[in-house]
């Protein structure tokens, strides 16, 4: 390996240490904003691991996230199981579900895949609500732990670091290279010997795994959980928009989108709570018309121009 390939991980390590000190410096309000931001960093980055290279837009994040929160809730409330046990089971369940969804849908082309994942997420939400209302008593679930916001923040940070580490390893592996080829031309990918279905399913499973893990870890923050709330489709859209805003083509792209987005989102939610959807729409237009490859794409473009000029 050459020196440049070590530069990124070194910077990442420094950033991670700085991020870890956030609960020590920030007050309660800013810590709460940071928890939200860290949650979206983990979700958007793991989403982009799959969707970045393949260009398959998945709107199933909310479903996996919901499985995480719901399993922790029902496990602790209804069966008296420990948080840790449920937080370990939830991502496994989501990974298996992602494998099944992947096998069934990744043969579909772009638009059909998007719609299918959205429909599927809604179906899971309704199914869980229905089971909850009809068989388990129509009540919410309590997630009572001793965790403080700081604990939740640090757990999310560890998850985010794992996502980055995984992404870094995948980008250097045959699998990562295979996904880039698939994103360019799936037919060529097959004819150079890539098992396209398998490659896509594996990466899709990792996004399911991490979304459920994040959903499980953040559940104690809400204390009281309702299926309708944790399976929110809004979350799926937010994850996609933040990842695209930053740029899904680079590992650190989503991070660059999540931070400004959560700050502005926070501001808008407080100042004009009814305008959040409008804000979402505006960001979406911004991505489509001005930043098709996100902030990262813009930065790369500017770098390239500067290089050409200096030649």
């Amino acid at each position: 390996m050459n020196s440049t390939s070590w530069k990124e991980p070194s910077i990442a390590a420094i950033v991670a240490i700085l991020a870890a000190s956030v609960p020590l410096v920030f007050d309660a309000y800013w810590l709460s904003v940071s928890v939200t931001a860290m949650m979206y960093i983990a979700l958007s980055t793991s989403w982009a691991l799959f969707s970045g290279p393949t260009h398959y837009i998945s709107l199933a994040t909310g479903a996996f996230f919901g499985i995480g929160g719901y399993l922790v809730g029902t496990g602790m409330s209804d069966y008296n199981l420990s948080f840790w046990l449920m937080a370990a089971i939830a991502p496994i369940v989501a990974t298996i579900l992602a494998a099944l969804i992947g096998l069934a849908t990744l043969r579909l082309s772009g638009v059909y895949f998007v719609i299918f994942t959205l429909g599927l997420a809604e179906m899971i939400r309704n199914l869980v609500s229905w089971i909850q209302n009809n068989f388990l008593g129509s009540r919410g679930l309590y997630v009572l732990t001793d965790f403080t916001e700081s604990h939740i923040y640090w757990m999310l940070l560890i998850i985010a670091c794992c996502v980055y580490l995984l992404g870094w390893l995948v980008n250097r592996s045959r699998l990562g290279f295979a996904l880039r080829i698939i994103g360019n031309d799936e037919s060529v990918a097959k004819h150079v010997g890539i098992n396209t279905a398998m490659s896509k399913v594996i990466l899709f499973m990792t996004t399911g795994f991490f979304a459920a893990l994040v959903g499980a870890v953040i559940a104690p923050r809400y204390t009281y959980i309702e299926p309708n709330q944790v399976f929110s489709p809004e979350l799926s859209f937010l994850v996609v928009i933040m990842a695209l805003l930053g740029g899904a083509g680079r590992l650190w792209g989503p991070l660059v989108g999540v931070i400004p987005f959560t700050l502005i989102w926070e501001f808008v939610s407080i100042q004009a709570p009814n305008s959040t959807t409008l804000f979402l729409g505006l960001v979406f237009l911004l991505i489509v018309y001005v930043l098709p490859h996100g902030f990262v794409g813009r930065i790369d473009q500017i770098n390239k121009k500067l290089k050409e000029r200096s030649h």
């Binding site: 880039r180 080829i181 994103g183 360019n184 031309d185 037919s187 060529v188 990918a189 097959k190 004819h191 150079v192 010997g193 890539i194 098992n195 396209t196």
Partner: peptide
């Protein structure tokens, strides 16, 4: 067999309309 398996057994092809990987 699926195309990738045939490729792995040693059948290589070009396409009538050239197919490259533009972002690479």
């Amino acid at each position: 067999l699926p195309a990738q398996e045939i490729a792995r057994r040693g059948v290589g092809r070009t396409f009538q309309l050239v197919r490259l990987l533009p972002s690479l």
